[in-house]
Simulated scan of single mutants.
Amino acid sequence: MQQNRTIHTDRYYTSTEQLMRVYDTNSRRMGLADEPAIDEYKEWRSNLVAKLREITGLNQMERCPLEPELIESTQMDGYRREKWTIETEQGVRMPFYILIPQDGNDGGGKLRCMITPHGHASGGKYSPAARTDIPSIADAVTNYNYGYGERFVKQGYIVFCPDARGFGERREWMLQGDEEHAFLNSTCVALNHVAISLGRSLTGMWVWDLMRLIDYIQSRDDCDASRIGCAGLSGGGLQTLWLAAMDERVRCAVVSGYFYGYKDSLLKLSQNCGCNYVPHLWNYADMGDIGALIAPRALLIETGTRDGLNGERGMVNVTEQVAVTQRAYALWGQEDRLHHHIFEGAHLWDGQETDAFVNKALG
């Protein structure tokens, strides 16, 4: 019989309750006012974007030549899949797939563009690109309804499926290899620890890489840079939300499974991935404020009623934040450019209303 090597603890002296009180006292100092005038909104937006650039470390990033390199090209059913890399910072390369419709721009016109960031448990770019020839990716596509990148290319978009830092071919040394757990997962927490200690953040690095991807899109003859959208699930929703908020070149955003109040979903549920955390973010803004930065450009938010990330209050925690974002769209008289699609389901990509919304926004 194995001897018990611990003792029973009757009471735990925790700190979370105090941190929630700190949150209530010190959060959202730069949140959107209840009834701002349009000029006040514009000033607020400029000030909050500047603050977010500071705390994410975006203002530390430096451009370098993109040096695009084609790695491989594969003919698929109805489209061509190319693998490219670009240099986003000096010495930092980002691999990504480009999915190009069968006819490409044979007619001489430029194509609408869609960036499709991935979330966790995706293997990186492989899930949005629907690499179902890889068994573990086939499971992820089934479980989370991944594969939205492939669905966009079959509608005639040229689609960009990047690896975020820490995922796919960008995993750091501690989680490299072909074993399924390592392949599907990421080193994003370790990267964020290092970034925060240098005054940066993983969120900032992710957004920077996507901004550089837009720079590359603008350089291509087959891309209509005036019609760029971004769509992602979960961590891909994080990337989409922040990119659209910080870069006005994104004309349409689809944020799936990532729109809720920080207190319920990231303070009380503090076991969620460390990549969500940006120094001082909660002091200045909540998620609805970040969404409000996108107005009046098109924004579709989709939420599953049973998504555990919504927190203990469920849909209330989501709709409170959507209401903040709605105030910004109302200021512009563009309420129809913001849509909240609620579906009966868990944490996955739904997409029932995505096609019509995106096609209307991007033409």
Rank of each mutant, 00 (worst) to 15 (best):
W332R: 02
L19Q: 13
L309D: 01
C230M: 13
S234R: 04
I55D: 09
D133P: 02
R251L: 07
S256E: 10
E67Y: 11
T56L: 05
E172Q: 11
R45G: 02
I342D: 08
D350P: 00
Y284D: 10
G91A: 07
H8Q: 09
A182W: 00
L269V: 01
N283I: 01
A231G: 03
G149S: 06
A292H: 04
G257D: 08
K154I: 05
P36Y: 12
H193N: 09
A253P: 02
R337Y: 11
T14Q: 08
L58P: 11
G108E: 09
T9C: 08
V250I: 15
Y284S: 11
F96C: 03
G333K: 07
G199N: 04
L202P: 01
R306F: 00
D77R: 10
S234M: 09
T88H: 02
A37Y: 03
I55M: 11
E302D: 11
R165T: 13
D221A: 14
N317L: 04
L184Q: 15
A328L: 05
C64L: 01
N143Y: 09
E248Y: 04
R337D: 09
K110R: 15
V194L: 10
I134W: 02
W282M: 09
Y144G: 01
S27E: 04
G124T: 10
A346L: 01
I301M: 05
R45A: 12
R220K: 15
V324A: 02
A50S: 15
R251D: 09
Y157V: 11
E72F: 04
D209M: 04
T325M: 09
A182D: 11
M61G: 00
N185Q: 06
V324I: 15
Y260I: 11
E344K: 07
T16M: 13
T16G: 08
N359F: 02
L32V: 02
R337F: 07
A50E: 15
D106K: 14
V141G: 03
D106R: 15
C188A: 15
F152Q: 01
G109R: 07
S136E: 14
S15N: 12
L48P: 00
L267G: 00
T132A: 07
G351R: 07
Y12T: 07
S122Q: 06
G91E: 03
C223V: 10
Y284Q: 02
W242C: 10
P162I: 14
L175S: 13
A138R: 14
M205P: 00
D106G: 12
T85C: 06
L299M: 14
K110S: 14
E302R: 01
G124Q: 10
I134C: 06
A37T: 15
P279W: 03
R227A: 15
H347S: 08
L266A: 06
N26M: 13
T6A: 05
H341T: 01
Q326P: 00
P128E: 13
G147K: 12
V324D: 01
Q352K: 07
L348P: 00
N26V: 12
Y144M: 12
G351N: 07
I86R: 00
Q326L: 08
K51M: 13
P101C: 01
V49N: 05
N276A: 08
L70K: 15
L300K: 09
R313P: 00
